[in-house]
Simulated assay, not measured.
Amino acid sequence: MRCPFYNNLWDNYWRQYRISAETAVQIALQRVPGQVLRVEVDTEDGLLVYEVYIRTTSGIIYEVTINANTGEILDVDRQND
């Protein structure tokens, strides 16, 4: 069982030191305009990231990986059908 103090401390850290999902979506849409299909939070190499999946007007789906702490775009990957 985790200590309630620890949980509150982690929750406060999480909210204070990362960009919001909405901000991540806006950053991703600046790089790949289209319709957002979903947003996921994940870790890559120990780094917290947002993975934003976007369908372009031509139907191509891209995954835009964004550093959840800085908002930097780390990768743009075209998804295979």
Rank of each mutant, 00 (worst) to 15 (best):
N7W: 06
G46K: 03
E22H: 04
T23Y: 03
T56A: 05
L9W: 13
T65Y: 02
Q16P: 06
Q26T: 11
Y13H: 14
N7Q: 12
G71I: 05
V36D: 00
S20H: 06
V41G: 05
E63H: 05
L29F: 01
I66M: 04
L47D: 07
C3P: 11
T70P: 11
E40Q: 08
I61Y: 04
W14C: 14
V25A: 10
R55M: 06
Q79M: 10
G46T: 00
I27L: 05
A68H: 11
V39A: 13
A68S: 10
L29S: 10
P33S: 13
E40V: 02
I54L: 10
T57L: 08
P4S: 05
N67R: 02
F5P: 14
Q79Y: 02
D45M: 01
V76F: 03
T57G: 04
Y13L: 15
R38K: 15
A28V: 00
N67S: 08
N7P: 08
R55G: 01
Y13S: 11
G59I: 06
L47P: 03
R2C: 13
I73Q: 05
Q35I: 04
L37D: 14
D45N: 06
Q26M: 08
R18C: 09
A28R: 04
E22A: 11
P4L: 02
F5H: 11
N69W: 07
A24K: 09
I61T: 14
W10D: 15
D11V: 13
V64Q: 02
D77Q: 07
Y50H: 03
D77T: 05
T65L: 04
A68T: 07
T23H: 14
P33M: 02
I27W: 06
R15Q: 15
Y62S: 07
V25W: 04
L37G: 14
R31M: 09
V25I: 13
V49T: 03
L29W: 01
E44A: 05
V52W: 00
L29H: 10
I66T: 06
R55E: 04
E44L: 01
V36P: 01
L9V: 15
E40L: 05
L48T: 09
Y6C: 11
D77E: 12
D11S: 09
L9H: 10
Y17G: 03
I54C: 07
V49Q: 00
Y53A: 12
R31G: 00
T43F: 09
I54V: 12
V49W: 09
A28N: 09
I27G: 01
Y53S: 10
I61A: 07
I27N: 06
N67F: 07
D75M: 03
I66G: 01
V41M: 12
T70R: 11
L47Y: 07
M1E: 06
P4I: 02
L48V: 14
Y17P: 01
T56L: 03
Y53F: 06
Y6K: 08
D77Y: 00
V25L: 10
V52C: 01
Q16R: 13
L37I: 14
V39Y: 08
R18T: 12
I27Y: 02
T65K: 06
Y50R: 08
E72N: 07
Y50S: 13
N8F: 07
E63P: 12
D81Y: 09
V52H: 03
D81A: 01
V25R: 08
Y53T: 13
V49M: 05
Y62R: 04
D77K: 03
T65H: 00
